[in-house]
Write a protein that binds this DNA or RNA. Sequence first.
DNA 1: ATGTCTGCAAATCCTTTGCATTTTA
DNA 2: TAAAATGCAAAGGATTTGCAGACAT
Lengths: 141, 141
Amino acid sequence: MPSSNHRFDTAISSLKKEKLRITEPRKALLQLLVEVSKPLSAEELHENLGSDHFDLVTVYRNLEAFENAGIANRIPTESGKSLYELNAEQHHYHHIICRKCHHTEKLDSCEVMKLETLAKDLGYSEITHVLELYGVCENCR
Amino acid sequence: MPSSNHRFDTAISSLKKEKLRITEPRKALLQLLVEVSKPLSAEELHENLGSDHFDLVTVYRNLEAFENAGIANRIPTESGKSLYELNAEQHHYHHIICRKCHHTEKLDSCEVMKLETLAKDLGYSEITHVLELYGVCENCR
DNA sequence: ATGTCTGCAAATCCTTTGCATTTTA
DNA sequence: TAAAATGCAAAGGATTTGCAGACAT
């Protein structure tokens, strides 16, 4: 399991590689993403940063920049709004997300290879997928 | 493969069973969903109905009613907006959707059982999932 | 120094809500 | 005729855009 510092440094390197600047908002946002290591909405990230430190727009713009740089992932949810998480370099996994309290856990497995192959056979390229489970957790039952 | 007429009649029965009224907008919307048999946005459905016949709001309200009645499904997409399709009663499948032209094909397989089991073991109930693939189709390459 | 990033305000997109009128059962 | 569905207008929430000033390289 890579340390928080390592994940942070790796992200900073990616920024440099993409010729993106290392700014205060970006450092703070990366630090937060590294620490929480679970998917949060732009709004939640903004609040966690202390809403008055940085603008919500800056959070959105940086999340987009991170996504393009391969540093973060956007997860579309059942409700239509998006969650963001740090890109898990080597591991590929999905989540089970409680519909009520948004408690989230990782599910360390991904069984979509068969479907991706089917899609490739149909002539599709640049294939990605969205796979998230939703349910009600024990506390909210 | 059930005929269009049969799928339409089944949907009408479901409406009756739920004590929902059989109105002109609902009949037209169901007819359209039966005919296209691929996921469309509320906007696209509205356009296909002839934008001046029925209000877009009515389309939204009926799609919600259909969803609650188990007649239609909402599919959250990568971009955040939703697509709707008629509920495929017996079969459970997913789609590969072209990022550029929205050409859509069914992938007749679903391999998520293992993940649902994992989630159940974690104490979650009422588990559902969202699984869609995205790519670029041959024409758009 | 210069091109990038930020904050603020305002716009946009999709979707939902309120209310008076029409329609279905 | 009573309850439910519709249309229109307006609100709502999440995200994006424009632009002038601030900052990183």
